[in-house]
Design a protein around this nucleic acid. Structure first.
Lengths: 335, 335
DNA sequence: GACCCCTCATGAAACGATTCAATAATGCCG
DNA sequence: CGGCATTATTGAATCGTTTCATGAGGGGTC
C-alpha cells in the first residue's frame, strides 16, 4: 500500500494540489462545494498528511522534547504531565527521552533532537558537560529550558524549586514540634539538590541551637534510608527526628525503624522530601516537602512557547517556585 | 542564524552535495582526503543534518512511539525503559505519549503519529474503540504492537502477561501458608486484568476449599485499599489474608491495618500484584506478584523491528510471559 | 460596455536530503 | 600506447508539502 499523497487526492477531486493544501490549512479560503469534494476524496482514499514534508517546508517540527534523568522517577513524570497539555494544544507531541543519568546517552539524544529540529526542549542535564551543546541548540534557534538546574548560570530560561527554603521548612517543622536533635539523611553531597536542602536545614538548626547529624548513603533510595537508620540507631543518644533528602530515603527509614520496633512518630519523627504519591500511602503516612511538580512542567512549556513566539527579542526568565510542607502522621501523631 | 544545509557544506569543501551525503552515509566510498575536507567543513559550519528531509526521502521516520495509559505508572515506565535500548541502537528516539485513559487524547495522538510516519508503535489502548484506527495504521505499513491487551484478538503482534496464572500463584502461596479464608481486593470488574487475577485466585481457592470474599473499591489505589480494609474488619470472622489486584491497593491495605493495630503478617497477611519498587520499600515489605515489565518492553520493541524487517511476509506473534511470586515479610514473618 | 473589485483556483518554485546513472580520473596489463 | 577495470565524484531527479504570484470568471457601478 504505497502512501497516497496530496497529488492523488487532487486528481481524485479534480483540483490542483494547491487547492487540497488550502482545504487542509485554510478551509475558509476555499469554496463550499470544492471543499466538500476534496474532503470526500481525502476520506475515500484514506489520505494522511505527511508531516516530514510539512516540516521540511516549515523548517521546524512542532514536537517538544523533554530529556529527563529517569523516566521512572515520579518527579519527572509529573513534570511531563504538567507540560503535555500545552504542547498538545499546540498540535505537537511530547518526546520523552530518558538519559538515565548517562552523559553519553544524553548527548546522543541531543544530537538526534537537533537533527529533528524540535520546536524546543526541556531538560535536566546530567551535569555541566552539555552546556556547550545546549548553547549551540539555542544558537540554532532551538529554545532550551532548564528544569531544576543551573538557574541563572546559563543562557537559557529555567524553572526550579527553592530547595534551600524546602530544607528550612522541614527543619522548622521539627524544631517547632520540640525536637532538639535532628538527623539529616542525604546522599552524595555533590548533588546540588541535596546540598541545598541540607543548607536550609542547617541554617534553621543553628539558629535554634539544635543538634544536627548528617548521614550520607551511597544512593538516594530506600536501601540508603535503611542503612542510615542502622548507623543512627547504633548511637546511645540517637536523634529523635529525621529529615530525609527525598521520600525514598524516608520510606527506607520508616521501614528500618519499623523493623526495629521504633515507633513513628512517638519515638522518632520523619520528614521526607518530594511528597510523592507513596508518601501518603505509607504505613505511617509521611510528612513531606511538596514541590509543585506539574506546575514546573507547565511553566517550563509556557516559557518555551513564549521564547518561540518572541523570537530574537527574547529575554531569558528564571522562575523559582516555593515548596510547601505537608504534615502527616510521621511527625504528628494525632493526624 | 539561518540553518546551514548540505549545499553550504558542499560549497565550503569544494565538492558536490552528493559527495557530502556520501561522507555522511557511506564514508568508505569517499577518498580519504576528500572526506577529511568535508568533515572539516561540517565542523566549521556547525552543520546538522535535517532529519525531515531525510525522512521525506526515506518515506518513514526511525522513531518509535509508545502510547501508555499513564506515564506516572511504574508499570509503563518500566516497559518504556525496556524498549528504549533497542530503539536507541536503531538510531531512533522513543516518543512517549500519555493517553491518560482518555480516548480522545489517544485518538489525537494516533492521528499525529500517523502523520509523522513513525516506524511503528507500542500501545496499550484505552479500550476497543481504537481497533479500526490501529488496523488502518497497520494497513499503512506502520506496525502496531499491543502491550498487555487483546492478545490474539486483533491483527497485530502483542505481548502480555498471564494474569490468571498470577492470581493462581498468589492464592496458592496463601493456601500453602495455611490460610483458610482469603479476601480479594479489586476494583471495577470491567478491567480485564482484575478479572483475570480474580479468576486465577478463585480457581485455586475452590480447589482447596478455601473461603474467598471479594471487595471492589472505586479505584485501584491506596485509598481503595484502606476503604476495603474498613469494610473487611467490620466482619466478626474477617479473613486472615488479603490478595490485592495491585500494589497500590496493597499499600493502602497495609496502611489501614497498621492504623488499626492489626499486625502484618501475624494477624493478617497481604499479597500485592506488580511488585513495584515501593512494594519492597514498604514498612512491612510486601509479597507481590512480579511481572517481567522491562522484558515486556524489550520484547515488544523486538517484535516491532522484526515486523519492519520481515515486511509483508510477516506473521503476527503473541507473546505471553509468566509472572512470578516474590515472597516478603507481609506473608512470611521470618523473612 | 468599460472598468474595477472579489472570490477562487492554479501551477511552479522552494525546502534539504538521498540515490543512481553517468562521467572523469587513475592505474594496470599486454 | 590503446584498452579496460576500478575508483571517485558529479548532477539531476525525487520525496510531499506549502506558498505566492498570476489569472480566470463573475458581479456591480458609472
Amino acid at each position: 500500500m504505497s502512501t497516497t499523497s496530496m497529488k492523488d487526492v487532487a486528481r481524485a477531486a479534480g483540483v490542483s494540489v494547491g487547492t487540497v493544501s488550502n482545504v487542509l490549512n485554510r478551509p475558509e479560503a476555499v469554496a463550499e462545494d470544492t471543499r466538500a469534494r476534496v474532503q470526500a476524496a481525502i476520506a475515500e482514499l484514506g489520505y494522511v498528511r505527511n508531516d516530514s514534508a510539512r516540516q521540511l517546508r516549515a523548517g521546524r517540527s512542532r514536537n517538544v522534547a523533554i530529556v529527563v534523568l529517569d523516566v521512572a522517577n515520579p518527579f519527572f513524570t509529573d513534570v511531563v504531565r504538567g507540560a503535555e497539555p500545552l504542547v498538545d494544544s499546540a498540535g505537537g507531541v511530547v518526546t520523552v527521552c530518558d538519559s538515565g543519568e548517562d552523559l553519553a546517552r544524553e548527548q546522543r539524544h541531543l544530537e538526534i533532537l537537533e537533527e529533528q529540529r524540535v520546536l524546543g526542549l526541556l531538560i535536566t542535564p546530567v551535569d555541566e558537560s552539555s552546556a556547550e551543546r545546549l548553547a549551540r541548540l539555542t544558537a540554532h534557534d532551538i529554545p532550551v529550558i532548564l528544569v531544576d538546574r543551573g538557574a541563572g548560570r546559563y543562557p537559557h530560561c529555567s524553572v526550579a524549586v527553592d530547595d534551600v527554603h524546602g530544607g528550612r521548612l522541614a527543619a522548622r517543622h521539627l524544631v517547632e514540634l520540640g525536637h532538639t536533635s535532628i538527623a539529616f539523611f542525604g546522599g552524595p553531597p555533590t548533588i546540588p539538590q541535596v546540598a541545598d536542602r541540607l543548607a536550609g536545614c542547617r541554617e534553621v538548626c543553628e539558629e535554634a541551637g539544635v543538634r544536627l547529624d548528617t548521614y550520607a548513603s551511597a544512593s538516594l533510595n530506600a536501601e540508603g534510608g535503611r542503612a542510615s537508620v542502622d548507623q543512627m540507631l547504633a548511637l546511645s543518644d540517637a536523634p529523635t527526628a529525621i529529615f530525609c533528602a527525598n521520600d525514598l530515603l524516608a520510606l527506607g527509614a520508616l521501614q528500618g525503624l519499623t523493623m526495629r520496633g521504633v515507633k513513628v512518630p512517638e519515638e522518632c519523627a520523619i520528614v521526607g522530601y518530594d511528597d510523592i504519591d507513596f508518601a501518603a500511602a505509607a504505613a505511617v503516612p509521611l510528612s513531606s516537602i511538596r514541590q509543585p511538580r506539574a506546575q514546573l512542567g507547565r511553566t517550563a512549556a509556557q516559557l518555551l512557547f513564549d521564547e518561540v513566539a518572541e523570537g530574537s527579542g527574547h529575554t531569558h526568565r528564571n522562575v523559582v517556585f516555593q515548596p510547601e510542607l505537608v504534615a502527616r502522621a510521621s511527625t504528628v501523631a494525632d493526624l
